[in-house]
């Protein structure tokens, strides 16, 4: 019995591992070209469902937000239906590599590490990191974080990577999803929450009793659509599309439709990247 069990377990392990490895073999080819997407009549786009005002589900169950506004237009111009796939921060790369989605439009910050795993199109938004904390104990510098204090981050975000790299002594309280991280901050489970500054600014505006003590942290980055590594036809189309949309000032319209209520007009030129052209930042991450 004991022996049989061990053999069975070993077999299970081998099977598991071989499944995993074949999984990645498939993943290398697991994208659909532009023509295949058009033929199928549906495009799968990965968006956030809990990151207002960028990607969220409204009270009617409809996807809304800055990212979704762009997604809608992409679907329209491709002439296909959109199938929205709700994603978490940490699964964005996975979803592309396994072909679960054709495009990720989930506020995906361009980084070198990520550019090794997926292909980023031209950017459509600027972003840096920010830190929000309760009014009665505003964190204005990360050096203020005490030994027993914890900082909330969302697993798989640039804020997490930044803190792990640059502040290895700060204790992180990690969550999978935005909704949980926000509730944890509201409940006072941590000293602060570090995330994209757009997100923490929105949080402080929407929730009384919280202040963005550190509005900008780390390097200035951009946000861009991503496709599976090697999916050149789709990438090229996206890049042309983003340049073309710039001519009609599409992303300013997007901002005014989705972000104006939250951020006001002041942030428009700081946040919006039009036609994929960022002033000083290099758009190619490779």
């Amino acid at each position: 019995m004991k022996k049989n069990q061990l053999i069975a377990a070993a077999a299970a392990a081998v099977l598991g591992i071989s499944l995993l490895s074949t999984g990645t073999v498939f993943a290398d080819e697991a994208f659909r070209t532009l023509d295949e997407i058009k033929e199928s009549g549906t495009i799968n786009i990965g968006v956030f469902s809990d990151k207002s005002p960028f990607g969220y589900v409204d009270e009617n169950g409809e996807y809304q937000g800055y990212d979704v506004y762009l997604a809608e237009r992409l679907g329209e111009d491709l002439g296909v239906e959109i199938n929205y796939v709700s994603t978490e921060a940490a699964s964005r790369i996975e979803y592309l590599q396994t072909g679960k989605v054709d495009i990720i439009l989930a506020n995906f910050t361009v980084t070198e590490e990520r550019a090794e795993e997926v292909d980023f199109a031209l950017p459509y938004m600027n972003v840096a990191l920010g830190v929000v904390s309760p009014d009665d104990a505003v964190v204005e510098s990360l050096d203020d974080i005490g030994e027993d204090d914890q900082v909330i981050v969302i697993s798989g975000t640039t804020a997490e990577t930044y803190l792990v790299k640059n502040y290895p002594d700060i204790k992180l309280q990690k969550y999978d999803a935005y909704a949980e991280a926000k509730t944890a901050l509201e409940n006072g489970n941590a000293a602060a929450w570090a995330n994209d500054n757009t997100e923490v600014i929105a949080f402080a505006i929407e929730n009384e009793g919280f202040t963005v003590g550190i509005p900008s942290l780390g390097s200035a980055d951009t946000i861009a659509p991503a496709v599976t590594k090697g999916n050149e036809t789709l990438l090229d189309w996206l890049n042309e599309e983003i340049v073309a949309l710039g001519e009609e000032q599409f992303f300013h319209a997007d901002y005014e439709a989705t972000l104006l209520d939250t951020y006001g007009a002041d942030y428009e030129d700081t946040l919006v990247v039009e036609g994929g052209a960022v002033g000083t930042v290099e758009t190619e991450a490779e």
Binding site: T24, S91, E113, Y175, A177, E180
Partner: peptide, 26 residues
């Protein structure tokens, strides 16, 4: 993971999210 405990599953997911070494992590 929903209550921020770094159990085996969350540790794997978290590392994949940061460094994308899916095969090794899983």
């Amino acid at each position: 993971s929903v209550i921020s405990l770094m159990d085996l599953m969350f540790t794997a997911k978290d590392l994949i999210g940061m460094y994308a070494k899916t095969l090794e992590c899983l």
